[in-house]
Design a protein around this nucleic acid. Sequence first.
DNA 1: GACATTACATGGCATTGCTATGCAATGCTT
DNA 2: AAGCATTGCATAGCAATGCCATGTAATGTC
Lengths: 223, 223
Amino acid sequence: MPCNVKAMPRTADPDVRRRLVERAARMLADREPVTLRSLVEGTGASTMAVYTHFGGMPGLWRAVRQEGFTRLHERLAAVPRTADPVHDVAALGVAYAANALDSPSLYRAMFDAVAELEDPAAADRGLAVLVAAASRAREEGRFSADADPAAVATRLWLAGHGLLSLVVQGVLPRDVVPEHSAETAVALLTAAGDDPAACRASVVRAWERAGTSRPRVRPRPGH
Amino acid sequence: MPCNVKAMPRTADPDVRRRLVERAARMLADREPVTLRSLVEGTGASTMAVYTHFGGMPGLWRAVRQEGFTRLHERLAAVPRTADPVHDVAALGVAYAANALDSPSLYRAMFDAVAELEDPAAADRGLAVLVAAASRAREEGRFSADADPAAVATRLWLAGHGLLSLVVQGVLPRDVVPEHSAETAVALLTAAGDDPAACRASVVRAWERAGTSRPRVRPRPGH
DNA sequence: GACATTACATGGCATTGCTATGCAATGCTT
DNA sequence: AAGCATTGCATAGCAATGCCATGTAATGTC
């Protein structure tokens, strides 16, 4: 058989895949139960569409988690770079928290089985943004020379995830996020070698800016 | 109706409640799917037992989470008190991690819907043990006077939970737990006012002791 | 000893995810 | 251009799940 290139019949997949994923994310945000039949109900598609595109509901959830990590990465990548690298590290934390609080159900779904992703590197890409900011902080002399930016970034992420996963579940109220995030960030970044006063100033500035400018409920443009 | 005291007929509930909860915890530990019928299969009981005792599967899960937090509290309360309060704080972290890693599925179940518990105070009791240790550290002069033991303890818990929830899901390997836990604890406790060198010594000692003495798989005595 | 109250066994129901089957639409081949 | 293979998907039905209506037996109270 000289050719195992497959033909591509039928409408060649318009974008029903993405529509289903986005509908699932929307239903998650609206706290509606995402079930196979309720998912395809409005779309005009049949339940089989889920199987041809995702192989089943676990595959759909994988795609939803993937979408969640993609949005997270976009949001982190959009954080502007300023002259203060420690501020930028904290600003990434602000963006991370905002992303989680804007769509809590999606955040829960993301980490419900985070070990299973279509592209496992997608989660790493988000962390890489934070690692890069931490590396810059060390290069610019804010950290001690023997500080490990990857380790510092990981610990910031771990602490932030612990906080947000509990807030998202309603165990802790949303308003504790800024203080706990800022204080933990100051502790970890100071431990990495930054000057305590300068570190606090940088971190507090990032969180203050967030509190004033970010709207309570953020509009969903084209999504 | 002068008397609304109810009669108590039938075998008066031997301990089928506890047996079901423990069987569910055991099935979780064995990674067997815990379903209504598979749960009651070996016990000789019928599916209705779950409804008379728990009102349904959500009620069973509530009871399982409750059991998880009870075991956690027992484990934390069993941590011996030494002359070094900062060491004791870290030792509580060691116990917390050991509890989670000994039964990862139970840990996942506990925080799967941690907002719904039979006795919501049970979770707080575990944290209270940590708060008490932190308070002692401040009383004995290891923290600065304006440090808030409850806030410090909460941040330690948040960071630990973030780390363990990801380890338990297989995102991070188990062997990163000691280092991340210890470093984060040192950062947070130093930020609370402890002397950096003394703090590191106390924390490292707690984690070293854990690594040498704790067996890989811990036997389950009477539980 | 009769009765009320409760624990539980039985069987069936709605919903869930899933899949076997059939049909129609598309691109490749000749 | 006609035939054909390949694929997307609609239909219908299956196994399993949680749940509940009903009936029954056991217990404490009067």
